[in-house]
Structure formats: C-alpha cells, structure tokens
Amino acid sequence: MLDAKVSPYLFVSPFFVLFLVVGMFPLGYTAWVSVHQWGLLSGQGDFTGLENYRRVLEDRYFWNALRNTISIFLLSSIPQVLIALALAGLLDTQLRARTLWRMSVLLPFVVAPAAVALIFGNVFGDRYGLANEVITWIGLEPIRWHVDTLASHVAIASMVNWRWTGYNALILLAAMQAVPRDVYESAALDGAGRIRQFTSITVPMIRPTVIFVIITSTIGGLQIFAEPRLFDTQGLGGSDRQYQTLTMYLWELGWRVRDLGMASAVAWLLFLIIVVFALVSLLVSRRAGTLKGHHRRSAPLKGARR
C-alpha cells in the first residue's frame, strides 16, 4: 500500500532534487548576496538591505542596457516567430526530400554561439565585411554595424534569428503535423486557399505550441549574451555601450567592477523583468489566438444555424 503511494513521488524526485540544487538554491543564494556588500575577491561584507538595488537603478548604464535588451529582443523574437511559422508551414507541405529540408533548418542550431558570433563578426565588419560589400555594390552607403546603435542591434538580432528560427520552426512543424488532415480537406471543399487554410486552421489549431514558442523565445531573447559579448573585443557593448545587454551589464558588474552584490541585484531585477515580459507575451498571444480562432470560425456556423 505504502509502496504504491510513495513510489510515484520517488520516481519524479530526481528532477525536483536536481532543480532544488541547481535551480532554487542559486536563486535564493543570489537574493542573499544581493542584499549584502559582496566583492568578487573580498567576499561577503555587511548586510546593506536594498542598497545594491538602489545603486543599480541609479546607474544610467542599467537603463541603457535595459533599452538595448528590449530593442534586440523585439528585433529578434518577433521576426523569429513569424518566419518560423511560415517556414514550418512550408515544411508541412508535400516536399520532395522532406527530411533533408527539415534537417537543414536545424543546422544553424548545432553551431556553437561563439562560432556564430565570429562568423557574423566578419560579415558585419564596418569596413571589410561581406554585408557592407553587398550594400555598397547595390549603390548604398555602407552601414557602421559596430558604431550605430540600431545597426548593431539589427546585426546581433540577425545572429540570434539565424540560430533559433529553424529550431522554433521544427517545434511548430511537429504541432502542425498533429492537425487532422480532414479539416484541411473540408476547408478545401469550402473553397479556402492555402493561405486562408494556414491562417484560419493551422495557426489557431497549434495555438498552445505557438504560445510555448513565444514564451520560450521571450525568456531566451531577454538573456542574450554570447552574440553581443563577442561582437567586439572589449566585451562592453561598444564604445558607448550601444549594444550592452542586461546580461552583459551583469557580467561587467561582477567580473570587471568586481561587485557581486550589485551583479546579484541585476540578476534578480532581470528575473522580475522576464516574468513580467513572459506574462505580457502570454496575454497578448492568447488574445490574438482567441480572436483568430473564434471569430472567424464561428461566423459561418451562425449563418448555417439561421
């Protein structure tokens, strides 16, 4: 009796034990560090309450990093999810050599972020980069990818998108394949074209997966580090910190300013920001999904009842 009651909990316990050790403990310990004076070399100092948080919120580079993070996040996550949706829709059709196409969209994901950053660093070179060579060949002015704020954000976002779009497309594709084919058949009989079928059937029916992809890319997008960190050699996000993200700011405080108390405060602020953004993403995507799902599908039904 007892065995049947206890053993299920024992079976799931490894995850929770591990999560407690490598998830909850660091979270709690970071909170503990953040309310102390805590140097990288000097270690724990006096309890200072919310002093570290106050100093972070008063630092203009915190707000600068927050702006950069949100900008790069919007430039990466929005096109990423839209392109992934379209890509998954295309991969869901009767292509020849389907497995080859599906495998190849995942290829960028296999490449280490540091290698991606090095390759794209060459592509986006201000003077001798491939991107500017193409741009000047068309007859436009070369873009200062490492100098201008928006240009640097676009360059970094394109690295992130290159890496993650295919991955998200495959998750969406898996969901699309679970959509019953007879729904498409009857839609086709009703005269719905491919695009109409995609927006009115595919997207509403895989809504939970779309929301999952949006939430995970929100969480990941707000923690971008390797790509902007390796975009120049100093690692501070450019001469004016024009592409320093919040995680890079955290790294700077911890390992350059050597103030782990302040760095921990940033970690917690980032955690709270991500929670807020994830909730907003959830609400927005739920709303958008509901409008598409109900509105369009219920209209002809009402007509039929009449």
Binding site: R127, Y128, H146, D232, T233
Partner: peptide, 17 residues
Amino acid sequence: NLVQWSEDWTASFQNDG
C-alpha cells in the same frame, strides 16, 4: 578609425589600411 584587434583592424593589414 579602427578598433585594435577587431576584424576590420586585422583585415587592414592586407588592405593597405
């Protein structure tokens, strides 16, 4: 107008920079 150790800086050695 080059940042030392950047890709452009390195490339400038081969481009008469």
